[in-house]
Computed example of a mutant assay.
Amino acid sequence: MDIEYFKETFHLLPESNKPLYQQLYEYFKRLILNKTLQEGDQMLPEVQICEAMGLSRSTVRKTMDKLIEDGLILRRRGKGSYVTSHKLRRQINYLYNFSENMESIGVHPSSIVLECKVLKKVPDDVREILHLPPENQSVFLLKRIRLADGEPILCENTYIPYHLCPGIQKYSFRSQSLYSVLLERYLLEPYHATESIEAVFLCEKDKELLECPEDVPGFKISRVSYLESGEIFEYTTSLTRSDKCVFMMDLFKNPSPSTYPIQIKRNITI
């Protein structure tokens, strides 16, 4: 991308309600997502953008900072900014929904369903984690590959006590959101969750499912979700490639427990 192409294709709209930095951000984001700007391409120097459009340095810097925050570019000291490989960026200080997260970064979410069934014989660890009552020992299992623009991102196993969602195995989760079905059909909505993240080596089967081009490590993510009543209603384990996922958290000094109703547990093992 050269400065002439930029001047021909980017048009500021002073009358727009969107701030100037937001207009510039959306322009560059669109070029990156449609691969006009590809991984490894160097971004225009900030000073050239300022001079071409008559923008302040602070406006352009704010645009670049937002592109960096969203994982779209990387700033290299003394060398400029470059388009980076596309990674799933997870804010782990709020309850996470894969489909919504994908749509927020401009990619299309989809799923490959590997298993969708009711387990009568439940693994001991799953039964203990879900605190299944003696009279309701069946569990719904949904095993999926989660994709972003057709590229595998997560191998995900979800377990839900079947007495909370009878008949749920009849739904097609290739096209439907699990959380949407749980909310709309069973009035089940996550209120609080605990999550652990662990660095792991991927086995051959997992590498095949995630289409790993090389021997990269992965992250194992384990999550237990609770209803507002405190009842456990979901246990999910996920595997993801470390080169395709970045975890982010906002940190505060001495936060008040009452300020954060969602508790997050991070156990990172190298």
Rank of each mutant, 00 (worst) to 15 (best):
G167F: 02
H192S: 09
L119W: 08
I129V: 15
T269K: 07
K253L: 14
P45E: 06
I68D: 13
A52T: 02
K117W: 05
I232L: 10
L88S: 10
Q23K: 04
S81N: 10
P213S: 12
I49V: 12
I145R: 03
P166L: 08
L114T: 03
I268K: 10
I73P: 03
R30C: 11
S56V: 06
S196N: 13
S256H: 13
I3R: 08
P261T: 02
I160G: 01
D41H: 09
N17I: 07
H163A: 06
P257E: 04
I232V: 15
E234Y: 15
E198P: 13
M43L: 15
Y162N: 11
Y179G: 01
L227N: 05
L164N: 02
K207Y: 03
D250E: 14
P123S: 06
T36A: 14
G71H: 05
D149G: 02
E103D: 03
F28W: 04
G78F: 14
G230T: 12
V224Q: 10
L142A: 04
I73W: 04
R185D: 00
K66F: 01
G106H: 04
G167H: 10
C212E: 05
P152V: 08
S111W: 04
L210S: 00
F6E: 02
Y179A: 00
P14K: 00
K244S: 09
E100V: 11
E189N: 09
